[in-house]
Amino acid sequence: MDVLYFAWVRERIGLPKERVETDAATVADLVSELRAREDRYDAAFADLSALRVAVDQELTDFDAPLAGAREVAFFPPMTGG
């Protein structure tokens, strides 16, 4: 699936988008896999309360299932308007 990062999450991880091969059942499982990769991922995901997640462009929770998901995005709370 495609994993996207926005705002400071993008800056901390160092890229806007990447292809990730994973069997993670939930968003939380995917986060665990990413955190185990490298320090920059571990740092970006250290405080999940500071992050939001969208699966296939719909806001959801970290316990959301990933079956069939094509795109997961991680970002800080939004600041529009």
Partner: peptide, 9 residues
Amino acid sequence: LKSRAPFWK
């Protein structure tokens, strides 16, 4: 729009 549309300032 302020907190549910994906914009970041």
